[in-house]
């Protein structure tokens, strides 16, 4: 019958389409982003952070980076605590993404010091030689438009102060982007909860390794440490390592657990074996450097 009645077909098709739509798209509004979802400490973006977020959108960063950590073991180990609904209540639009050409950024905030981000955005390959991320040094030449940003804050209904808007004068896209990246995922104190604790005695398994063996571990240093401490340990974003004289256990602990407040990330996800190799490599090299 409906095959001869176009209006009836349109009505029936609309009904068929609306059932799933109502159940899976409209109904969830009753639960999502409600009081039950609320997480203490999650705050709206500041004017500078929000502008950074809009630049992230403008340049399509979400085409290569996701912003949601799934509750899966390798994922939590790699990026940090899994994402929770209440962390995203101020995100318009959401930026979870669908493809990880680059790493997930949901827990990036506070992982590295600002200087790391400035250098990395300017020239990603200077820190990660084989990356395919394009250079964003041109951000430093784009001055922000405080009036426009104020309008955005008004539209979003986010709190801001006149002083905050005035401070945007002279700041550029790069400053905004770094401010945004440093906010990502840091509203909940997950880093404290996820801090690694070392139990038991630390015994250097490579105490007897010879010079030749140890120099073979150079690539581990180059891949993980050189970006901040320099290819020859001369220091840059992080301190110079030559001349430092920590013993094996302390150096291992610093690398393995990181110095959360000092901008040194934890490298526990490399595993104890690689961290011991790094410890021995750095100590051997330090000895040479201090001679």
């Amino acid at each position: 019958m409906w095959e001869k009645k176009p209006i009836l077909l349109l009505v029936l098709a609309t009904c068929a389409i609306m059932v799933g739509t109502i159940v899976t798209m409209i109904l969830p509004f009753a639960w999502v982003n409600t009081e039950a979802d609320r997480i203490e400490g999650v705050t709206p973006y500041t004017a500078l952070q929000q502008e950074g977020r809009d630049i992230y959108i403008r340049d399509g960063c979400n085409n290569c980076h996701t912003q949601t950590v799934r509750p899966l073991v390798p994922e939590v180990l790699r990026y940090g605590d899994y994402s929770k609904s209440g962390e995203f209540v101020y995100d318009r639009p959401f930026l979870w993404g669908s493809k990880r050409t680059g790493p997930d950024l949901a827990r990036l905030g506070g992982k590295y010091p600002d200087a790391w981000h400035y250098k990395h955005m300017e020239s990603p390959r200077s820190m990660v030689p084989k990356t395919n991320m394009p250079d964003y040094g041109w951000y430093s030449n784009n001055l922000l438009d405080p009036q426009m940003i104020q309008r955005k804050m008004e539209t979003l209904g986010f709190p801001y102060t006149a002083e905050e808007i005035k401070d945007l004068e002279g700041k550029n896209d790069m400053d905004a982007m770094v401010a945004y990246l440093q906010k990502l995922g840091s509203d909940i104190p997950w880093r404290d909860a996820a801090e690694t604790t070392i139990v038991g005695d630390l015994v250097n398994p490579y105490a007897d390794a010879n010079q030749e063996t140890i120099s073979g571990w150079a690539p581990i240093y180059a891949d993980n440490c050189a970006a901040c401490h320099g290819p020859n340990m001369e220091g840059e974003i992080g301190p110079e390592l030559i001349g430092e004289d920590y013993d094996d256990e302390i150096l291992f602990t610093i690398i393995y657990t990181g110095i959360t407040d000092g901008g040194m990330p934890s490298f526990s996800n490399l595993g104890t074996d690689k961290v011991w190799k790094l410890t021995n490599y750095i100590r051997t090299y330090q000895a040479e450097g201090s001679q």
Partner: peptide
């Protein structure tokens, strides 16, 4: 916000669900 910029009517998880619907 302007002729070339707008913010989604939905936030966070809701926005994600609407978008992938």
């Amino acid at each position: 916000v302007s002729f070339f910029k707008s913010y989604s009517a939905y936030a966070g998880t809701n926005d994600a669900n609407v978008q992938w619907w």
